[in-house]
Simulated assay, not measured.
Amino acid sequence: MFVRRTHPAEILEICADLRPADRAEMLATSFVDDPAEHGAAIASGLDQAVVALTLLDDRRAPVAFVGFWQIAPGVATVAMFATPAFPSIAKEAHRFCRDRLMRDAVPRAFRRVECRALETNARARLWLKRLGFVEEAVLPRLGKRGESFVQCAWVNPSYRQEAPHELFQ
């Protein structure tokens, strides 16, 4: 597996061949019904991402996208979507996301990372759990066709919350 900063064309290539679960999840909260159109919106906003990476297979074909966007000071939202070729890089992708992102880079940048997974997407929810995310709440009827989502979050274990009295001394 290879990893590099995402080029906008790679997002479009991945969105043209999404895994069915990723397509359902993506389109459930999108204003559009075409993955290519949604992918174009993501591609046009890459400059707003803190991290935007493409995971490639051994032929260097784009297989998955991982992106983090800051939504509040010290807080990010993360998205990941892939093509049906994902199983060919799944183990390496998991190790990369677990070790390089969630254990190394992310704790230096964020105290909290959030992700919403389609409630029926058991595979995504299990993967998030293996990366250290905790399911916080079910969000009923969040999707445009009434789909429910699960709010997941990773909270930085090394973040030290200051006591309120310490903030004013």
Rank of each mutant, 00 (worst) to 15 (best):
T120Y: 04
F96I: 08
C115E: 09
R141F: 00
A122D: 13
C15R: 00
F31S: 12
D57M: 09
E37W: 07
A61L: 13
S88D: 15
A90G: 07
V138S: 11
L12R: 06
D47F: 04
D22F: 04
A90H: 05
S44W: 01
Q48P: 00
V138T: 15
G74M: 00
I89G: 08
A117G: 12
D34G: 03
F31M: 12
I14A: 04
A124W: 02
T83P: 07
P62Y: 10
V138C: 12
S30R: 05
L27K: 01
W69K: 06
A61V: 13
E135G: 15
K129A: 14
M102G: 05
V51M: 14
G39W: 02
K129R: 14
S44D: 15
E10V: 04
E119R: 15
L46Y: 02
T77D: 14
A40H: 05
R98D: 13
L101Q: 10
A79Y: 03
H38A: 15
T77I: 13
T120F: 03
W127L: 09
L56I: 09
A122M: 06
I71R: 12
A122T: 13
D34P: 03
A28F: 00
V113L: 05
C97F: 13
S88H: 15
A16C: 01
A72F: 01
L142P: 00
G74W: 06
R130G: 00
T54G: 03
T54L: 01
D33A: 13
I42Y: 01
V134L: 13
Q48I: 02
R112Y: 04
T83L: 10
E147D: 05
G74F: 05
Q70T: 11
T54A: 00
G45I: 04
D34Q: 08
D47M: 03
V138A: 13
S30K: 05
A76D: 01
D58I: 01
C97G: 09
D47A: 11
G132D: 09
P73Y: 04
P20F: 00
A64L: 00
A40Q: 10
R108L: 14
A122H: 12
A16R: 14
A9K: 14
R59W: 07
E135V: 05
D17F: 09
A90E: 09
A90L: 08
R123C: 07
F81S: 03
